[in-house]
């Protein structure tokens, strides 16, 4: 068996293992969905009236703010789900079975790849579920073409991939689940200080660079453009560059952590 088919075969075995975990213990995945759904409802129904004045089209139309909000909530869902990945990697690394995998003639990276692919699938599924809630409370993306829909889905998957590799590194570098959950918190905090809830230009001047130059803002703006037809501009390329950069960084970081000598 050549090394590529070995990698594919072992990684899909590991993926099946992780999906089995997720299916057997769905409570963690579902708990992670609570935060984005709660934020969606809170901002749409409670803060929406006030917040909508900041989005720039002057009106206080709740459905306009809901449309503005949903792309940000979608990527916040991805961030939250990857915190779960960091935690489950940290838990898994403390399991004796990982040492067993290391003594077997299997593809070295398959353990991590299984986690990453599983997590990306979980992220996409979570975004679909949160999206369904959004549609149920009135979100519509009728202007988007099927190609834009596919691109939107692809963007969600790409962001998931990038954030998951970072989250896996965070999980590997954490001694236990609690530490992993703390270390991975930026994945949830970053979307809160992005353009998810209010446009960057509505923020205080000193804060605008923080919101502007971070991965979530260009990704959210791109998703917004794809779903709602707003201007994307160079944000699309910025989003893709951020994602590829983070994915590569996370991959190198994670594999070097995984391959370091075990005590």
């Amino acid at each position: 068996m050549n090394s590529l088919s070995l990698a594919v075969r072992d990684s899909s075995t590991m993926l099946r293992r992780n999906l089995l975990h997720a299916r057997r213990y769905p409570s963690m995945t579902l708990n992670l969905l609570l935060t984005p759904v709660m934020l969606l409802l809170l901002f749409a129904y409670v803060f929406g009236g006030v917040m909508s004045q900041g989005i720039g089209d002057g009106g206080t139309d709740r459905s306009a703010y809901l449309a503005y909000l949903v792309p940000g909530i979608a990527l916040l869902t991805v961030g939250g789900t990857t915190i779960g990945s960091a935690v489950s990697v940290a838990i898994d690394m403390n399991e004796g079975i990982i040492a067993r995998f290391r003594t077997m003639a299997i593809h070295r990276g398959s353990v991590l790849i299984g986690h990453v692919v599983g997590s990306v699938l979980q992220c996409v599924a979570s975004v679909v579920l949160v999206g369904a809630v959004a549609v149920a409370i009135g979100f519509r993306s009728t202007g988007a073409t099927p190609v834009e829909w596919l691109l939107a889905l692809g963007l969600v998957a790409l962001v998931s991939l990038a954030l998951t590799w970072i989250a896996v590194g965070m999980g590997l570098s954490s001694p236990n689940a609690e530490a992993a959950s703390n270390n991975a918190l930026p994945l949830m905090v970053l979307p809160l200080i992005s353009s998810a809830f209010v446009p960057v230009h509505a923020m205080p001047g000193w804060f605008q660079p923080i919101a502007e130059y971070q991965p979530f803002t260009p990704a959210i703006e791109t998703l917004r453009g794809l779903l709602l037809g707003t201007e994307i501009g160079d944000k699309g390329w910025a989003a893709v560059a951020w994602c590829l950069g983070l994915a590569a960084l996370g991959y190198l970081w994670s594999t070097s952590l995984f391959n370091r000598d075990q005590k």
Binding site: R17, L20, H21, R24, Y25, E95, G96, I97, A99, R100, T103, M104, A105
Partner: peptide, 21 residues
Amino acid sequence: PDGVRAAIGVTGQFSAVDGLI
């Protein structure tokens, strides 16, 4: 190492089973 791994089986001191499945 892969030549070694293909020939050996290891049962460590701490149980190497996946408890969740």
